[in-house]
Amino acid sequence: MIVAEQKPFEEIAKMVEIFDKVLILGCNECVTVCLSGGEKEVGVLATSLRLYRKQGDRPITTVEETLVRQCEWEYLDEIEKLVEDVDCIISMACGVGVQFVAERFPDKWVIPALDTKCAGGAVEHGLWEERCGMCGECILHKTGGVCPVARCSKRILNGPCGGSQNGKCEVKDVDCIWDQIYKRMMALGRMDQLMEIELEKDWSKARDGGPRKMSREEVMIGE
């Protein structure tokens, strides 16, 4: 899932200071699962903003709504009426959701409430970790199912580097993923594979090549 984290309240409050009626829009997908932009978080942010603004001379009215997902037009269509009536929309979705909202409602000012962090998962309650670097060409079959692109601080493809000690990366609080890859490959009897030099990666398939697209002719609607 996409892992996102709420921006500091102060920043959000600053972004909405000139607005009197805002729609706080949650998303029921990834950000609900990572507890940053679901229905509950919408409620907390809305209440926080009201509490904050009530202390000044400019109270704020909040409208709360949470969509099935913000990254699909049909769900955004549902809130057309709600949107008409507000000064701005605070999207509590990932960056994708925020942009879909902005594109769907070009006349409205849209504010992101979250910082989108990574593609990852919850390794335990309340702890999410990055797992995928979205490089556009998966190499997990070469590294025992452990991704060095996302999880090595230097995204080294022939690791570990000299900074690895006791399973730890030279970068603070990071596990050396190549330590794990090595141990896993050993355990699986695939050391010979790890001895092969992994050549330069084709970064044109990653973000470096420019914004990416994917299309599937057979699911397109039309003639």
């Binding site: 330069e200 990666k201 084709d202 970064w203 044109s204 090549g209 420019g210």
Partner: peptide, 13 residues
């Protein structure tokens, strides 16, 4: 210029 124009189009930028 973006690296895709050059002779190492697969490089990172």
């Amino acid at each position: 210029d973006h690296q895709s124009f050059g002779n190492h189009p697969t490089s990172a930028n």
